[in-house]
């Protein structure tokens, strides 16, 4: 972690330029330019269908863009082969929306998994390291439970512990507060802020929850219909007079008719040529 941030003190850890992505022949992301600087929390915001999940999948290298560049820790994701990509991914942590824990393993084993696969540490060291991460997430003593025995908020935190167990320098978090009650969501926000302050981690959060975004963000990027319409600090974004952004912030319904055929086509990749 330190090697990376020393080398490029202020150069961005994630740099996206001219990213264009299609799903079938429908344009999903259109010319995205985005930077994440070391030690900051960038929140990518947008309503459903704005393309924010697709953007995240591209940042993780799970999808290849139609054109454009994605540099993570100085390496161009689009040019890496699988081996190089896997090497890079050991330095990033990803927390998924519902934790994405493996149901056949206990919570503890889930957190231990990356260490067991990527390091030669002995089993007892690995267990201690995993427990420390769980403790950090206020889940001490939960390591022997199965994921099915945890609540939604606990699953997210356990997923976060697993994402952090390799001490990544960048953390990606998909929808930290979706589906949680306000108190639990606020707890997760605090955890994320703590990570930035104590570990100096760069964090990318994808969310549609306004309150949480304003709480944690250093900068916000607002995505709408595949385009980034505003990027800037919380105050800058709040002050913008872009109508779409204000709609999102003030929960104004847009009342736009959704084109059924285009929607179905995007959803299924299948043409419903109904008369």
């Amino acid at each position: 972690m330190s090697a990376v941030s020393d080398n490029c003190a202020d150069s961005p850890v994630v740099e996206v330029s001219g990213l264009v992505a299609h799903y079938g022949d429908r344009l999903i992301l259109d010319g995205i330019d985005l930077q994440v600087f070391p030690g900051e929390i960038l929140v990518i915001m947008g309503g459903s269908g704005s393309g924010k999940s697709t953007l995240l999948r591209h940042l993780l290298g799970l999808k290849k863009p139609s054109s454009g560049q994605i540099r993570v820790l100085g390496e161009d994701l689009t040019r890496l082969d699988q081996k190089q990509l896997f090497k890079l991914r050991r330095k990033i942590g990803v927390a998924f929306q519902n934790g994405a824990l493996f149901g056949s393993l206990t919570v503890g084993e889930n957190v231990e998994l990356p260490l067991r696969e990527h390091t030669d540490l002995d089993a007892s060291t690995i267990r201690v390291m995993a427990r420390m991460k769980l403790e950090m997430m206020n889940l001490a003593g939960f390591d022997m439970l199965m994921p099915s025995e945890l609540s939604g908020g606990m699953l997210k935190r356990a997923g976060l512990a697993r994402a952090l167990v390799m001490d990544p320098s960048i953390l990606f978090f998909d929808e930290p507060s979706a589906g949680l009650d306000p108190v639990t969501a606020a707890e997760l926000d605090d955890l994320i802020l703590n990570l930035r302050d104590t570990l100096g981690m760069s964090i990318v959060v994808v969310t549609h929850e306004l309150e949480s975004a304003f709480n944690i963000a250093d900068r916000i990027a607002v995505l709408d219909e595949g385009r980034l319409i505003v990027t800037g600090s919380v105050d800058e974004v709040r002050a913008t007079d872009n109508e779409r952004v204000q709609d999102l912030f003030h929960r104004r319904p847009r009342n736009e008719a959704v084109d059924r055929d285009a929607y179905l086509h995007r959803l299924t990749g299948y043409r419903h040529d109904a008369p």
Binding site: L60, Q82, R89, I92, A100, G103, E117, R162
Partner: peptide, 18 residues
């Protein structure tokens, strides 16, 4: 199928596990 729809397979990839 369940691992796919619950993003567990994506999670494996992101943990650099093939």
């Amino acid at each position: 199928g369940i691992m796919r729809s619950e993003e567990q397979i994506d999670a494996l990839e992101c943990m650099a596990i093939d």
